[in-house]
Design a protein around this nucleic acid. Structure first.
Lengths: 225, 225
DNA sequence: CTCATAAAGTCATCAGATGACTTTATGAGT
DNA sequence: ACTCATAAAGTCATCTGATGACTTTATGAG
């Protein structure tokens, strides 16, 4: 597909072996070639082969038995996609989170109740505007509002995936860059609630897109610079 | 949880480092001691340290930057949301997948190239219509088309999450009910490609929604009955 | 004070060697 | 012919040392 990400030898070895496993070249229970053979086949050192094998063991694909060999334990790993998603770029993760924001807002608009709207307005009021002080707490209040919008959609799958991206994005931001990312103001937030309150999915959709556009644009500028 | 077999230095190193991470001895973004130091601290060789670190990287806890060091990326268990999302209802999972379909189609419409469109049309032709025979192979071809639409968006996070839901949905369907879910026909698929080809995100969005509506409606009837 | 360059620090990878454990081959004893 | 202890071979586990690639920091000329 696209291989623009600089890849190291061990990761290539992991993918090479994994593809042979999921491609059913070896069945469950089969014994892999020994480390020396794999080393020669993949044109990497034995140490690199061992790193690759150990990762695949930790992911449940393989099992090693000292003195005996390495065996296929499973040909699939359900946790892989999320692990990979977590390694995607900040831009991509944010874009995915936006997708959930938009679609959840549509659902919420269709399924809203007066109580839902009241709770959202209350959370938004609690959030307030940032005026110095404990930034972590403010971010948590902000996130609580967004989570509530998703939660109001009633879709548990979206709720969990959204939480996944929120945490992953927070990690990435904390680890890589300062927060030069614009924080939409009170009015932008209130617009979302109002749009949901109309009960029209298209209005909710549009409100969230307007909300997110400047943030995504800022991320693009960061990448280009 | 962990077996009592202590027969493995690398696993002990993994647990030692992981416990220091989740125990907040190092915060997110912190730099770990270099490989030589870890090697001395844990009383294992550098190669063993590297195996341990690589496993933790694959699990999302750490991140290594050649020439710079090894950094804490997350202190939380990344697999929890996954487990919860898998437990969501089939309806919710499908709805989440639709959200990705819609948003990815928008992105693809904006970023498409002639090659992209050509590949999509080729895949759709390969898919053909189901006319009896190997149903598994047909489903795989159908999925390949949908995956290609997502892949063309260029968003790696969405690609992986989509794969996650696809697999999870397939599991759920196989485990619980037969396939009384309607399969959109050739024309519905072709409409999506055409809409993407216009380059207009709104048209792509609408095409996917038209595509998905009957499927979601069928799921709703199932739940109500 | 700026900025190109050198130096130091760190991960990536390789090669070779030894030890531990498992499996298989061997052969004496019955 | 069979049994079974033992040797031999095969394989993973681990260590040591070295080289290359990349990043960060220190240096010094202008």
């Amino acid at each position: 597909m696209q291989a623009l990400s600089k890849t190291n030898l061990a990761d290539e070895a992991i993918e090479a072996i994994r593809s042979d496993i999921v491609g059913k070249r070896w069945a469950v229970g089969d014994k892999l070639p020994n480390e020396a053979s794999l080393s020669a086949t993949l044109s990497v050192s034995r140490g690199t082969v061992r790193e690759a094998v150990r990762v695949l063991v930790s992911q449940g694909y393989l099992e090693t038995r000292q003195g005996s060999g390495t065996y296929v334990r499973s040909t699939s790993d359900a946790s892989r996609p999320l692990t990979m998603a977590r390694r995607a770029s900040l831009r991509d993760q944010f874009e995915a989170r936006c997708a959930l924001d938009v679609e959840a807002a549509r659902l919420t608009a269709m399924r809203k109740t007066p109580e839902t709207i009241a709770e959202l307005r209350w959370l938004l009021n609690e959030r307030g505007s940032y005026a110095g002080g404990d930034e972590t707490a403010f971010i948590e209040r902000d996130l609580a509002f967004h989570r509530a919008v998703i939660a109001a959609s009633g879709n548990r799958a979206m709720i969990e995936i959204y939480a996944f991206f929120s945490a992953s994005i927070a990690d990435t931001i904390a680890a890589t860059l300062g927060k030069d990312i614009p924080e939409p103001d009170m009015q932008a937030h209130a617009d979302i609630v109002d749009a949901i309150d109309t009960g029209d999915p298209d209005q909710a959709d549009a409100a969230v897109r307007r909300f997110m556009a400047p943030v995504l644009a800022a991320l693009d500028r960061m990448i280009l610079s």
